[in-house]
């Protein structure tokens, strides 16, 4: 076959014959179909997203215009659409993000450093890694049950709480801790991957000049892996802010919520969060105009998430710029 082809090519005596052979039209049909179907998949995904966003916006904007955005943001939970506001939900969601950033981030990164840099490749450690991977896929409602049993009941204690029962029951602390545990496997996995991607040459350079293992990790491995670790944090934020099921289990408020003074009271007191408000308003009658409230709350949720992610990405880009400069 190959011999026949090469003989045929040798027999193309003139440049004209060669030209007609190598400029044959028709092209790569299969390739074109492949490319178009890839594009179609992309457009389908985008179209769904655009449709979702436009529905939300078309419901939310007239309501927000009528109420005034500021009033909606500052208002509190209410049984009437014209007085309803999401300030308590924003506070709850932001606090949950704070818990994730303060607890899940350092603990997860530290665990990843141990797994990647210190743990030997033993059967036990392989099982450990597999378990963490599986944990990241466990449905959030299961984490909600953990939060209910451990944080709300065991560490909450109700009215006659002992000194070590610090969560206050169905509180922001319980919700924050539950969410931090929920995203911990995601942080560990993404941080592990970022650490694994640090080039071997960089580690060797550090060891080669007589740095200890912890010095190599602190001054070379972690700075290099930081952008990747922050990408994982963005994912963790997104997961934590969007989950409603664990909050439901821990006991987020669905009706009215009284205001509280002071940090401790806020943290130990009853709470709600933006996804809870979405869930709760979506159940109320359409006729009273609740769909518009739901849409407006979704919009606020997206904006809060966008701000959290944008700050993580901004930080990441700054680190990256510093690295390449």
């Amino acid at each position: 076959m190959a011999l026949a082809l090469s003989r045929e090519r040798r027999e193309e005596r003139t440049s004209e014959a060669v030209r007609s052979a190598i400029t044959r039209s028709g092209g790569d049909r299969v390739g074109l179909v492949f490319k178009v179907s890839l594009l179609a998949c992309l457009l389908f995904a985008l179209a769904l997203l655009v449709w979702l966003m436009s529905t939300v916006l078309s419901d939310a904007l007239p309501y927000l215009n009528e109420r005034g955005t500021g009033e909606f943001l500052n208002g509190r939970l209410s049984s009437r659409t014209e007085r309803f506001g999401v300030s308590q939900g924003i506070i709850g969601s932001v606090w949950i993000l704070v818990f994730v950033a303060v607890l899940a981030f350092p603990v997860g990164v530290a665990a990843a450093v141990y797994l990647e840099e210190y743990a030997r490749n033993t059967r036990l450690n392989r099982v450990l890694v597999l378990t963490i991977r599986n944990l990241s896929g466990v449905p959030s409602v299961v984490y909600g049950i953990l939060g209910l049993v451990v944080f709300k009941e065991l560490l909450g204690g109700g009215d006659d709480a002992a000194w070590w029962q610090f969560t206050g029951g169905s509180s922001l602390i319980s919700a924050g801790l539950t969410m931090a545990i929920l995203v911990l496997p995601i942080v560990i996995i993404t941080a592990s991957e970022a650490i694994r991607a640090v080039p071997r040459e960089l580690r060797e350079a550090g060891f080669g000049v007589g740095a200890t293992q912890s010095e190599v990790i602190r001054s070379h491995v972690l700075p290099y892996a930081l952008p990747g670790i922050l990408t994982g944090t963005v994912l963790a934020f997104a997961r934590a802010i969007g989950e409603a099921a664990p909050l439901l289990m821990v006991g987020a408020v669905t009706g009215l919520l009284s205001s509280k003074d002071g940090l401790i009271d806020t943290l130990q007191g009853k709470f709600t969060a933006l996804p809870m408000i979405v869930y709760q308003t979506a159940k109320r009658p359409d006729a009273e105009g609740w769909p518009a409230v739901t849409a407006a709350t979704i919009l606020v949720l997206l904006v809060v998430l966008l701000v959290a992610n944008a700050s993580a990405i901004f930080f990441r880009n700054r680190v990256e710029r510093k690295r390449s400069r």
Binding site: E201, A205, V209, A211, S219
Partner: peptide, 25 residues
Amino acid sequence: RRRVGMVFQKPNPFPKSIWHNIAYA
């Protein structure tokens, strides 16, 4: 390793300033 230094196949400076590369050891 402080007494027996090493230079590798692929140049592998730290992604830091020239000064910090030398001062690190």
